[in-house]
């Protein structure tokens, strides 16, 4: 077996035996599962409220009552909470995956051993990145399976072929989003001497990308950004927001992820029921920026690992 796979498999194996990783993974999967249930309860109640309102309006003598707007919502609406959980918990989980990947080697004292084996640094590095990607792929697949199965249990909306295609694209996008955060976690685990700082700095970046930049671009408070219905609301007019959109807009990856995902899952306020093709075309810039960000992180990680000097491992936990 090529060395690169040996390293990648080792990475996944060790990770999946860590209790904290499992705890986070369990919460993530549980939330994905819960989101279907929450959606079911909320929509059933809303339909009842609609029916009660119709009755009320009839008695009041109003005719011409609009049809239940819930029925007009596309089937993929069931998945809109998944966007939030990947955005929120998935990305934190990914930071932990990347962080642990290098910190583990530092703390176990295995790093000098790895670096004195006759393997090219490139292979060691890409083996690790491959391992991290495999782990993220496993996480994403698990949520994919859980959410598809739980949506089959919901009685009133059924997925068609194009929905599956959209879901597939959404999960592929999510994979890259998570990969970005895993690489940020990895980068600071290499660069930062203190283990706690190596975890705190990525969390800072996470808050920045998930809440601060989107707020500056859209004027939305953090909680509003976590509501899938209003998630991709655009900013009010005004020179301030126009400026922010021009200069900070391209950088706000979190905003790109949620708005692109919203369109892929037919959950957007902006364009309703846009075709897959047009959704992809409209968002190719966002995808491009995400891939660039991943590329930058990858190069920075590689560069720092090449220049990593073994020193007295002085990890102040």
């Amino acid at each position: 077996m090529p060395i690169i796979f040996t390293i990648a498999i080792q990475e996944v194996k060790v990770l999946f035996r860590e209790r904290v990783f499992f705890l986070l993974l369990a919460i993530f999967i549980l939330m994905t599962l819960a989101s279907s249930f929450i959606g079911l309860v909320a929509t059933t109640t809303t339909t009842s409220i609609y029916n009660a309102s119709v009755e009320f309006l009839h008695q009041a003598g109003t005719d011409n009552i609009p049809a239940n707007p819930l029925n007009a919502l596309p089937a993929l609406t069931n998945f809109r909470n998944v966007i939030v959980y990947i955005f929120l918990i998935g990305s934190l989980l990914a930071i932990v995956v990347g962080h642990r990947s290098f910190i583990r080697e530092r703390k176990s004292g295995a790093l000098p051993l790895l670096l004195t084996r006759p393997i090219l640094a490139e292979k060691l590095f890409f083996g690790k990145v491959l391992g991290i990607s495999l782990a993220l792929f496993a996480i994403i697949s698990a949520t994919f399976i859980v959410s598809v199965f739980s949506s089959l249990l919901l009685p009133f909306r059924h997925l068609v072929a194009s929905d599956i295609e959209r879901l597939f694209l959404f999960y592929a996008l999510s994979f890259f989003y998570l990969l970005f955060f895993a690489l940020v976690g990895l980068l600071f685990a290499i660069k930062t001497k203190s283990e706690s700082l190596a975890l705190f700095v990525p969390v800072c970046i996470w808050v920045g990308i998930s809440f601060v930049l989107p707020e500056l671009v859209s004027g939305q408070t953090p909680t509003a950004l976590l509501n899938p219905v209003t998630m991709d609301q655009v900013a009010p007019d005004g020179t301030f927001f126009a400026l922010m959109r021009t200069y900070l807009g391209p950088l706000s990856l979190g905003w790109h992820y949620t708005s692109f995902s919203s369109q892929l899952l037919n959950n957007s306020l902006q364009i309703t029921n846009a075709g897959i093709g047009s959704a992809l075309r409209d968002n190719s810039g966002k995808l491009f920026i995400l891939l660039i960000a991943i590329g930058v992180c990858l190069s920075l990680c590689f560069y720092s690992i090449r220049n990593y000097t073994i020193q007295e491992e002085n990890i102040y936990e």
């Binding site: 080792q10 583990r104 295995a110």
Partner: peptide, 26 residues
């Protein structure tokens, strides 16, 4: 090479740890 204070991977068994390094050594 045996560095000072090497701890290895706690979650793996002795042979899993050794096999990993064996593979890395070719």
């Amino acid at each position: 090479y045996l560095p000072e204070n090497v701890k290895f991977y706690d979650n793996l068994t002795a042979s899993e740890n050794l096999e990993y390094f064996a593979k890395l050594s070719g």
